[in-house]
Simulated assay, not measured.
Amino acid sequence: MSVRAIVPLLLASLMLGCGSNSRPIPPVAEVDVPRFMGDWYVIAHIPSRPEREAFDAVESYALRPDGRIQTTFRYRKGSFEAPVKTMHPVGTVKSGTNGAEWGMQFIWPIKAEYVIVYLDADYQQTIVGRSKRDYVWLMSRTPKMSDADYNKATARIAALGYDLSKLRRVPQSGGVKQP
């Protein structure tokens, strides 16, 4: 076999090997997407690289006229006194998922998996995860969560197959104001 024939096969096998071997993470049965919109304070997370030192992290969602979800993630890096940083990914609800699974696009054309795996009946607390179990976000409509609710949420996160030793509680001072 020639080198030209081997290289594409090698690249294809490497790409397949990089895929997730984990089982799909179970979404909630249904999300009323318009009701889900608004501010969510990040209470705890297994953070992505930009979030590792986040303080006052708030994820805000707004429906766009085209049906996609404009997201604004606001946080301070390293302290409550640090300037507010923002990221603006765009979410797309996957069809056939009853609003529970989104593709979150930070950089075109890549859409990251974003699965709502827990949502209380009052839309006051949620957990968002990924099948790879690499990132998770515990969020609330308020910047504080009772210890009882936090413990229930972390038990849910553990039951989903996450390593709780990687979970970071996000310091919250009462919220980041819109810059």
Rank of each mutant, 00 (worst) to 15 (best):
Thr92Val: 05
Val93Tyr: 07
Lys94Thr: 12
Lys94Ser: 12
Lys94Ala: 14
Ser95Phe: 05
Gly96Asn: 04
Gly96Glu: 06
Gly96Cys: 08
Thr97His: 03
Asn98Val: 02
Asn98Tyr: 04
Asn98Lys: 13
Gly99Glu: 10
Ala100Tyr: 01
Ala100Cys: 02
Glu101Met: 10
Trp102Cys: 04
Trp102Lys: 01
Trp102Val: 03
Trp102Ile: 02
Gly103Met: 04
Gly103Ile: 06
Gly103Leu: 10
Met104Ile: 15
Gln105His: 06
Gln105Asp: 06
Phe106Gln: 10
Phe106Gly: 11
Ile107Phe: 09
Ile107Ala: 03
Trp108Thr: 09
Ile110Leu: 04
Lys111Tyr: 13
Lys111Asn: 12
Lys111Gly: 06
Ala112Trp: 14
Glu113Trp: 08
Glu113His: 09
Tyr114Cys: 12
Tyr114Asn: 14
Tyr114Glu: 10
Val115Glu: 08
Ile116Cys: 05
Val117Asp: 03
Val117Ala: 10
Val117Lys: 02
Val117Met: 03
Tyr118His: 15
Leu119Ala: 01
Asp120Thr: 04
Asp120Tyr: 01
Asp120Leu: 00
Asp120Ser: 02
Asp120Cys: 04
Ala121Glu: 14
Asp122Ala: 14
Asp122Asn: 14
Asp122Thr: 13
Asp122Phe: 03
Tyr123Asn: 05
Tyr123Thr: 02
Gln124Asp: 07
Gln125Cys: 06
Thr126Pro: 01
Thr126Ala: 13
Val128Leu: 12
Val128Gln: 07
Val128Ile: 15
Gly129Ile: 08
Gly129Asp: 11
Gly129Ser: 12
Arg130Ile: 11
Arg130Thr: 15
Arg130Phe: 06
Ser131Glu: 03
Ser131Phe: 08
Ser131Asp: 07
Ser131Gln: 07
Lys132Asn: 11
Lys132His: 09
Arg133Trp: 05
Arg133Asp: 05
Asp134His: 13
Tyr135His: 07
Val136Ile: 08
Val136Ser: 03
Val136Cys: 02
Trp137Asp: 04
Trp137His: 09
Trp137Ala: 09
Trp137Phe: 14
Leu138Pro: 10
Leu138Ser: 12
Met139Asp: 04
Met139Phe: 04
Met139Leu: 08
Ser140Met: 08
Ser140His: 13
Ser140Ile: 13
Ser140Asp: 12
Arg141Thr: 00
Arg141Ala: 00
Arg141Val: 00
Thr142Gln: 15
Thr142Val: 13
Thr142Met: 07
Pro143Thr: 12
Pro143Ile: 12
Lys144Pro: 04
Lys144Thr: 15
Met145Tyr: 00
Ser146Val: 08
Asp147Ile: 11
Asp147Lys: 15
Asp147Ala: 15
Asp147Arg: 15
Ala148Gly: 00
Ala148Leu: 01
Ala148Val: 07
Asp149Asn: 10
Tyr150Arg: 07
Tyr150Met: 05
